[in-house]
Design a protein around this nucleic acid. Sequence first.
DNA 1: CTGAAAGCGCTAACAC
DNA 2: GTGTTAGCGCTTTCAG
Lengths: 344, 344
Amino acid sequence: MEHSPRASLHDVARAAGVSLATVDRVLHGRAGVRARTVERVHAAVEQLGYRPDPAATRLARKRSARLAVVLPAGTNSFVGLLSQQVQALAPWLAEQRAAAAVQSVDVFSPVDLAQHLAGLQGQVDAVVVMALDHPLVRAAIDDLAAHGTVVVTLVSDVPTARRSHFVGIDNVAAGRTAATLLGRFIGPREGRVGIVMGSRALRDHAERLFGFEQVMAAEHPHLTLLAPIEGQDRSERTEPLVAELLRREPDLAGLYSIGAGNRGIGAALAASGRARHVTWVCHELTPYTRRALLDGVADAVINQDAGHEMRSACRLALAALSGERVLPDQERIRIDVFLKDNLP
Amino acid sequence: MEHSPRASLHDVARAAGVSLATVDRVLHGRAGVRARTVERVHAAVEQLGYRPDPAATRLARKRSARLAVVLPAGTNSFVGLLSQQVQALAPWLAEQRAAAAVQSVDVFSPVDLAQHLAGLQGQVDAVVVMALDHPLVRAAIDDLAAHGTVVVTLVSDVPTARRSHFVGIDNVAAGRTAATLLGRFIGPREGRVGIVMGSRALRDHAERLFGFEQVMAAEHPHLTLLAPIEGQDRSERTEPLVAELLRREPDLAGLYSIGAGNRGIGAALAASGRARHVTWVCHELTPYTRRALLDGVADAVINQDAGHEMRSACRLALAALSGERVLPDQERIRIDVFLKDNLP
DNA sequence: CTGAAAGCGCTAACAC
DNA sequence: GTGTTAGCGCTTTCAG
């Protein structure tokens, strides 16, 4: 097949028998074009297989796109990593004629989150949000979407909402992965396994727990799961809870920590002097969990790459705004498994 | 600090008291500019912190950059994946005003490889090559670099050569990772572990073996390593070798396969009826190793993402050609660990 | 050795 | 409703 140079706006205009400006109006859904003309333009676009040239678009665009990145307030390390990534992305975003601002909201309050999202209406072109799945939040997202704001959910999805993408991992699979690692590391001996999570109300935590229990029951039935402990993702709360667990269970074989608060868990483990005898698998690579892995306190860390997630979310948001193509492969977030040997 | 709009070529030209064209000449190292003028331009660039706008550059460029991707000939699945990725990248490359062509060369012959690389002189702007580390090859790479061709090594590095980047994983760390997985999966019982590699002459294989032996000796001394078997990365050769190994070692506890030929290894394992009793860790996720993982024949697959590697190699090559900035984080290839539960 | 000028494909202001 | 036109920041002839 001959390599035909790609069609330009000009070609489309000529084929449709209209001017550049009209084609532009149609392509951007601006009003003030007769229905018949709109159709003719669409037909020409179709027929020529027109795709806008992103380089030209960026060069010509005056106004830069505004992104809001809404993250949970608090001092969670992983969330800190995410917001750092936004800073790191600034120069790249500027080149794409875009700018992002991080906003913190109390994620445990659906009302606040929903209100905050509603306030973004018309203020920004796209919002990237780490949300919790709640009817109020869902409605706020649908509202934004209805008014033409692009919404991308991050880390924890709101599946039924009209967000244009979800960027994150399959948390059920992540839980299954944790179970396989824990089960195989512990080996064939009998024993009990503790579980620490932030809250059952968090969708990602619930999904991980589900996957974990599934594989444990099916493939490691000689291990008994203890009732999950809920520590609100905060070390001050997880530490005493885990300390007590260790006291109650002098032969604890393993520990799965589903959410944050790992600093507290590690401290309790260390204080008990049994860090080496309890196999510990947790999530998210932070300075603390990295240290724990290297020290042999943690045995495996299951991770989602914060940098990859933020880049992906921004790329997808911008692509949705401009109709640019994406490479789906590049946007798939992997479930990383880190041992002390393959740390980045 | 005030947000000063970035400096453009125009600003540089004005500051240096010359024209656009002259600045362009200096920036692209073209001849025909007085030394004093060159200096003045450089000073202006420095002083204004000028960075070219990639969008404008791509838009204006007539000629598109030519990339050659040189891969080993043969039917290795992983290499197949890499060359597929080049196809997948074509539309994106076209948008960047670039085009890539895959070329196959017998990688086990340094003479052929070196000759092939020499032939690329002046034919292409950049070459991405999966090379083997040999003085002839190193010289060929240095030669290309000396004549202004950008060279990126892929998967297996040629460290002392003047390539502009290496895209791939730390293979020593990958070998260590394999050892930890194998050691912990097998557990505290004594046993013997077989090793299959393509050839000791391949740099990446040798590095993996090194890392593997290191961790095995230090952390799993109750496991005895058998002498490595070399199967040239081909299933027809690995299958009988592994079959014989299994016959010789009726209690084999584990198997580490460092390179390709996994189809043959899996077949031998299955034929012996002992797949479930031998813990098997291998490299590179291909349709075959994925199947083996799901069937419980393989226990873990250590992977480098072919798509990520090829995208990265092309991005880095283009960035080197155009002086564009890269996000180093985005170009770091991870050592992926896949279990049956976290397959993509 | 150096400069002027014509675009690349698109957006956006303004005119009809 | 629709068309014209002036750039965006760079590359690349073609003249001096």
